[in-house]
Design a protein around this nucleic acid. Structure first.
Lengths: 237, 237
DNA sequence: GCTGGAACGTACACTAGCGTACGGAACAAT
DNA sequence: ATTGTTCCGTACGCTAGTGTACGTTCCAGC
């Protein structure tokens, strides 16, 4: 495959980079570069999605509200993907919260504009659908991990997924935030973190976790980590 | 909307029924009616999907293998949907097992043929994508329920989803099977079933569970049940 | 009618994780 | 330098669910 037009222009978002020259050109004029500030909301439940976002850095979470005061992350998006898969699927809304978990930057685009672009180029939708497949696979893996993973395994998995999406080895995270993502107690996360630190897999600081031994984390996460990542590799090379 | 061509021909599968006359006509010659026998495999991990299936009755499960001897259901398909969402998304495989959980019948169609049909009618894919959105929403709800639901809640949710997909009130299920779906111990399921029976929500027989009080089950399931079902209603009327 | 196997009931000791809650440590703002 | 606030460590009693294992009941097949 020829080198991507998007990549030539300095884009690192893998969905954008994977587009054909024509399809990328259809989107490019409408993409607005912007900061993704911490906690910035990108989608609200049962509300029409206004923009879709293509991260270049940082992490965006898709979070389901369960009972009152309880919530769990059901999807995680970084520079490998995009928000607004509902738009790609022809819908205009979702039943979850989507917001920035680790600050970064990226590109925004009106959902209506993306929809119009699908009309002009059916191949554009097909390209973006490949990412939807990866995202679905990730959600399924999350369902599986939530169903049987022990807390340490789930934590290891989550840290690996986060690490995949940042530059370097430092993750700016509080225990509280991780607890919300995993749908468990904050104190439980503290214990689990200490356990990983005890095995020298990570280093825990205030508001920060440093990955020390990725292979070790993968070993601990076991089956819970890897499947969607392999899907990504297979479909996006 | 005019009455569906598929419905006129006696089809009850809601995806097929939702298609335009032209799109349905594109598929109809290739649909083969068949029995869905218990435990019949429809997709295997990392193997090209040969056929997609549109159930008319019965239940098909999408199951993720976790650790050795452990597995969890991450998706459930009845006459509201179809197997092979990967095909609709332009891929040719999935990382999960897909097999018949409650016997029934439906229609099969070669995956390659469906792909060809997408080429002839882009609107066909768009129609099927609406179901993918519902399925994704269901998977997210499963991830959320697995993350925080108590066993009784998850059991109630599962029974409701199964009940939505059969005629009548009887579900032919063993505790063992439910245990595999929820990724928990068989003995744990027995206890949970007794709890629901104690509240007169169900009646438990050998190899069979009868739904007695649907509203009560929904109350018990709470937030864990309902979101994807509302999505289905919204998108398929 | 008897037998074998599948499905279900029950038991017990054990572990993970919960809810709550309090104290200390780090940091930001004044 | 002091104060307020966020973040993290820890503790304790409690519950849900586990792994294992042994009965019991139901039913099909001979």
């Amino acid at each position: 495959m020829a080198r991507s037009v998007a990549a030539e222009r300095g884009f690192r978002n893998r969905v954008l980079v994977s587009l054909s020259a024509d399809d990328f050109e259809l989107l490019r004029p409408h993409l607005v570069s912007m900061e993704f500030k911490l906690r910035m909301s990108m989608e609200e439940p049962d509300t029409a999605i206004e923009h879709v976002y293509f991260p270049e850095s940082g992490i965006v979470s898709v979070v389901a509200e369960a009972a009152k005061r309880k919530s769990v992350e059901v999807g995680l998006i970084g520079r490998e993907g995009m928000t607004g898969v509902a738009i790609v699927l022809g819908d205009d809304r979702t039943s979850n919260h989507v917001y920035v978990q680790i600050a970064g930057n990226g590109h925004a685009m009106p959902a209506a504009t993306l929809n119009r672009a699908f009309g002009e180029s059916p191949t554009l939708r097909v390209s973006l659908l490949r990412y939807v497949q990866v995202f679905l696979s990730q959600t399924m893996a999350t369902a599986s991990a939530n169903g049987q993973g022990k807390l340490e395994e789930r934590l290891a998995r989550w840290l690996l997924m986060a690490h995949d999406r940042v530059d370097g080895f430092s993750l700016p995270l509080t225990h509280e935030l991780i607890a919300m993502m995993l749908g468990v107690r904050r104190a439980g996360v503290t214990i689990a973190i200490q356990l990983l630190e005890g095995r020298s897999l990570i280093k825990a600081l205030r508001r920060e976790i440093v990955v020390r031994d990725r292979a070790g984390l993968e070993r601990l996460a076991g089956q819970t980590y890897g499947t969607p990542e392999r899907e990504m590799k297979r479909l996006f090379g």
